[in-house]
Amino acid sequence: MSPGRTPRALDATTRVVAARDQVSTELEGEAVILHLGDGVYYGLNPVGARLWSLLEEPRTVAELRDTLVAEYEVDAQTAERDVLALMDELMERGLLEPATDG
């Protein structure tokens, strides 16, 4: 975790959005993300890439979970656990931030 960054407790009602200091593209069904602050590239598999595409606009963890349940063969509990794990990791790496109104 970056110095000075405090971990955030995420739950189904947390609204998140892709961080401003990154650029990303889709490459053969996967997402490639460049963090502009540290110059590190990150990759996401097709399911992660689908979630990432939704994060261009603020979404709640529940909305992301519901998308996975609708589009993939996964139950809600497993989908929520996996979404929370990915969102935690993306936030820790500075690629995701809490969405603010306005």
Rank of each mutant, 00 (worst) to 15 (best):
L10H: 08
L10P: 06
D11A: 07
A12H: 01
A12R: 00
T14V: 03
V16A: 06
V16F: 06
V16G: 05
V17F: 00
R20A: 14
D21A: 00
D21R: 01
V23Q: 01
V23G: 01
V23P: 02
S24Q: 02
S24Y: 03
T25I: 02
E26L: 14
L27C: 07
E28I: 08
E28Q: 14
G29W: 13
E30N: 09
A31Y: 03
A31K: 04
V32P: 01
V32L: 03
V32R: 00
I33N: 05
L34C: 03
H35F: 07
L36M: 05
L36W: 06
G37H: 01
D38M: 07
G39I: 02
V40D: 08
V40R: 12
Y41R: 12
Y42N: 13
L44Q: 07
L44H: 08
N45L: 15
P46C: 07
P46A: 06
P46D: 06
V47R: 02
V47C: 03
V47E: 01
V47T: 03
G48K: 04
G48Y: 08
G48N: 04
R50H: 15
L51D: 00
L51I: 01
W52S: 04
W52D: 04
S53E: 14
L54G: 10
L54H: 09
E56P: 12
P58A: 06
V61F: 06
A62C: 04
R65C: 06
T67F: 11
T67K: 10
L68V: 05
V69H: 07
A70P: 05
A70T: 10
A70K: 06
E71Q: 14
Y72L: 12
Y72W: 13
Y72T: 12
Y72C: 11
Y72I: 10
E73F: 09
E73C: 13
V74N: 08
V74K: 07
D75I: 12
A76H: 13
T78N: 14
T78P: 12
A79L: 11
A79Q: 10
R81Y: 13
D82A: 11
L84I: 13
M87W: 13
E89F: 15
E89H: 14
E89V: 12
L90G: 13
L90V: 13
L90M: 10
M91P: 10
E92W: 12
E92I: 14
E92Y: 14
